[in-house]
Amino acid sequence: TTEYTFTDDEEARRAIEELKKRGLTFRYEKHGTTWRVRVD
Rank of each mutant, 00 (worst) to 15 (best):
E29W: 15
R38L: 15
K20E: 11
L24A: 12
T1K: 08
E3G: 03
D9G: 08
Y28Q: 03
Y28S: 05
K20I: 14
F6E: 00
R14T: 08
D9N: 06
T34I: 14
V39I: 11
R36Q: 07
A12H: 02
R13A: 09
V37K: 00
E10Q: 10
K30V: 09
Y28T: 09
Y4H: 03
A12W: 06
F6N: 00
E10G: 10
A15S: 04
Y4V: 04
I16S: 01
V39E: 02
R38Y: 15
L19F: 14
W35T: 06
K21E: 09
T1L: 11
L24Q: 06
Y4D: 01
L19G: 01
E3Y: 14
T7E: 12
D40H: 12
R14A: 12
T1R: 09
H31I: 15
F6D: 00
L19Y: 06
R22C: 08
R27K: 11
T2A: 08
Y4F: 11
V37R: 00
G32S: 03
E29S: 10
T2Y: 14
G23A: 04
F26R: 00
R13K: 11
W35G: 01
F26M: 04
V39S: 02
T7S: 08
T25M: 10
Y4T: 03
E18W: 14
T33H: 12
R36V: 15
R22E: 06
D40Q: 12
F26A: 04
R14F: 07
E3N: 05
A12N: 01
T2L: 13
L24T: 05
D9L: 08
K20Y: 10
T33K: 10
I16P: 00
E11Q: 11
T25Q: 11
T5L: 14
R36L: 15
K20R: 13
A15N: 04
F6T: 02
T7K: 06
F6L: 02
R13F: 13
E29H: 08
A15E: 04
H31Q: 13
R27N: 09
T34E: 12
T1S: 11
K21H: 06
T5C: 12
T25Y: 10
H31R: 09
K21F: 06
R36W: 15
H31N: 13
E18K: 07
H31M: 12
T5K: 05
W35C: 05
W35F: 04
D9R: 09
E3T: 13
R27V: 14
Y4N: 02
T1F: 15
L24R: 05
T25D: 06
R22I: 08
E29I: 10
R38I: 15
F26Q: 00
T5H: 07
R22H: 08
D8R: 05
E10T: 11
D8T: 13
R14H: 09
K20A: 09
E10W: 09
T33A: 10
Y28C: 13
K30W: 04
E10A: 11
D8I: 04
D40S: 11
E29T: 11
K20P: 00
G32V: 02
V37P: 02
D40W: 15
E11D: 10
D9A: 12
A15D: 01
E18H: 09
L24P: 01
R36E: 06
G23I: 01
E3S: 06
R38T: 15
K20G: 05
T25N: 11
T7R: 06
